[in-house]
Design a protein around this nucleic acid. Structure first.
Lengths: 158, 158
DNA sequence: ACATATCGGACACGATTTGTCCTATATCGG
DNA sequence: CCGATATAGGACAAATCGTGTCCGATATGT
């Protein structure tokens, strides 16, 4: 599993929508500009997000996107998996025909455990939590990543 | 991050070598056949593993591969990262130019945490542990996944 | 020397990712 | 109802990546 650019865009887009909940429909163009996403491409991503029930789309003049649920009800996992597909670290866990010994294979059990751990973590984090944490620390939401310049530092994990 | 086929091959190969430690050099051809890996391709993977210091390679007649350390000293993480590169779930954490706000970005912190959790888990599992667990449950090592036909067991799902 | 076996570069091929372009369609405002 | 606006959705393009093969060069054991 790798968070693709599409997945990144999806997170940015939803995070932006989660910023002020009462706002209603937001134009794709605005989201694209602020969040530094190719507008057309965002259209594709948005369609996927809509199919997954994460956003609502209004067409036509004054159209755009809005959250289909509250920011507290949308987890990072849902966003990522909606766009990038279900998370499988290992193809063996995914394509049944690749491996016949799944049930008794220690390696598979390890990957299965790792997968569950990862999905649990991402599933436990809502957009609301992200927005809140962000506002506590920096006052700005990420997703702006490439947009906001000037704060370079060396990052690690944790 | 996704465990590629190369990564899978690497795990199979090392697991096979870990099976009986006293054996010395094992021919690539043998490994490839038993573990169902394209022999030439295994050559490429093996070179990478050698560079990472995980296996030793003997060229020439009666050449082949052997573990460079004991099976207890090689973790799954080392194997995977040697072949597939260091695990980064998110490009943002990886390519510095993509995102300037890493240190203060909540999303990045989440991915960073997830990454650490995953690497810690994989880092805590040695080849020896895998071999041992495997022999306890089924008596055969995985990696043979596609190789061992007719042994398809169901149930016992974790 | 000869047979054996890996090295390592070149190349092929398909899948995936990341976009763009264009036409159709839906919606709002007057 | 008309026209401006904005997204839908299919086609297409380019780049990258993963997987694998082929082949001459090189190293090693007998």
């Amino acid at each position: 599993m790798r968070l693709t650019r599409s997945g990144d865009y999806a997170v940015r887009c939803l995070l932006y929508l989660a910023l002020d909940p009462g706002r209603g429909v937001v134009a794709r163009k605005e989201i694209a500009e602020v969040m530094n996403i190719p507008a057309q491409y965002l259209g594709k991503v948005a369609q996927t997000l809509a199919k997954a029930g994460l956003i609502g789309i209004r067409q036509g003049a004054r159209g755009g996107y809005e959250l289909a649920r509250t920011a507290g009800e949308i987890s990072l996992l849902q966003v990522v998996e909606a766009v990038d597909g279900e998370i499988f670290l290992n193809d063996c866990l995914h394509q049944l025909d690749i491996c016949e010994r799944r049930p008794v294979c220690a390696v598979h059990r390890v990957w299965g455990r790792a997968r569950k751990q990862l999905r649990d973590m991402l599933g436990g984090i809502s957009l609301a939590a992200l927005v809140e944490e962000e506002s506590r620390t920096a006052g700005k939401v990420c997703g702006e990543c490439p947009a906001t310049r000037g704060q370079t530092l060396e990052g690690k994990g944790e």
